[in-house]
């Protein structure tokens, strides 16, 4: 009798514990899925008054005047897209070169290890430190370049003066550094995933190393490199602090890269702390636009990445 009762207790525990744990894991998963929906729900409900008042005109209007309660984010959307694309323009050749460099055996492995470490370090440095560095290093350099460019290339719209240190170009240069690790890592994965047989086939036909890279390896890895670029673009669009510290945060539209600009993320960072009333709703509307843009870009990147993987899965 006593033996039975001492046995029955652990059995009961064993039965309840596992079921509880299973249920707990299910709840955690459901919560994780709900998070994204919750984020979007909260942003939409908080933005609702602004959405009702401004509608889609919010996207096309260029005036952001909090004390007259007039809000529009067109310059910030343009700034977000422009700064990210310019950053990609800088980061793409660099990132691709490093990815090729890391996936080929140009130099002994230790040297490649160092480069790899450097790129990973770049990814680890906080955004705000990039911003601080940008203020004291990149801004002066861009100012000097800007003065020179206005004097010599002033006729070109993108270099029309006056040149500012806090400018679109400054923000883009620092952004390029920040997304370099993303471009490099994903491109490198795409390059190393190119089947060995293709590379060997190219060499067997007498191709030099770069004929093999340009003629065979890069075309095979191209979708992966495109995915890397798209995902890096998504990162650049959401990047906040460094951009907010360097771009000048102006809502005035300008063709010149040397003038201040603004981005959606920078707008949020600058104004949320002191916003009241309709301004909060409008900022939430801006946040919603940012979420929609970045989600779209990221989904696109993921789809391209998946397509790549399914394409190269067959040849081994």
């Amino acid at each position: 009798m006593s033996r039975e009762s001492s046995d029955s207790k652990p059995i009961a525990e064993v039965r309840v514990g596992p079921d509880l744990f299973h249920a707990l894991c299910w709840v955690a998963s459901a919560l994780a899925v709900a998070t994204l929906a919750w984020i979007i729900y909260e942003i939409v409900t908080s933005a609702w008054p602004a959405i009702q008042k401004f509608g889609f005109g919010f996207l096309g209007s260029s005036s952001w005047v909090p004390n007259r309660e007039v809000f529009g984010v067109f310059p910030f959307i343009v700034g977000t897209v422009a700064s990210s694309f310019i950053a990609i323009l800088f980061a793409f050749p660099l990132g691709l070169a490093i990815a090729i460099f890391l996936s080929e055996n140009f130099l002994p492995a230790p040297v490649r290890q160092v480069i790899r470490f450097v790129v990973e370090m770049l990814a680890a440095i906080p955004s705000v430190v990039f911003g601080l560095w940008g203020i004291f290093v990149v801004i002066p350099i861009i100012k000097i370049f800007g003065d020179w460019a206005v004097k010599n290339l002033g006729g070109v719209p993108i270099f029309s003066g006056p040149a500012y240190g806090n400018s679109m170009l400054t923000a883009s240069v620092v952004l390029a550094l920040m997304i370099l690790p993303t471009v490099t890592a994903i491109s490198r994965n795409a390059l190393t995933a190119v089947p060995k047989t293709l590379r060997e086939g190219a060499y067997a036909l007498g191709a030099t190393r770069w004929e093999a890279i340009l003629g065979v390896i890069l075309p095979t890895a191209a979708p992966g490199v495109v995915a890397a670029t798209i995902l890096a673009l998504g990162r650049a669009m959401g990047e906040t602090m460094a951009v907010a510290m360097l771009i000048g945060n102006s809502s005035r539209l300008s063709w010149s890269l040397l003038s201040p600009g603004g981005t959606l993320a920078g707008l949020l960072a600058n104004q949320f702390g002191e916003a009241e009333g309709l301004q909060v709703n409008s900022l939430m509307y801006a946040a919603l636009i940012l979420v929609v843009i970045t989600l779209f870009v990221n989904v696109l990147g993921e789809l391209v990445l998946r397509y790549t993987q399914s394409q190269t899965a067959g040849i081994r």
Binding site: I43, A287, V291
Partner: peptide, 11 residues
């Protein structure tokens, strides 16, 4: 992972 970090703050 693709959502900008500032959106976490907005949330």
């Amino acid at each position: 992972t693709g959502i900008p970090s500032i959106i976490c703050g907005v949330f």
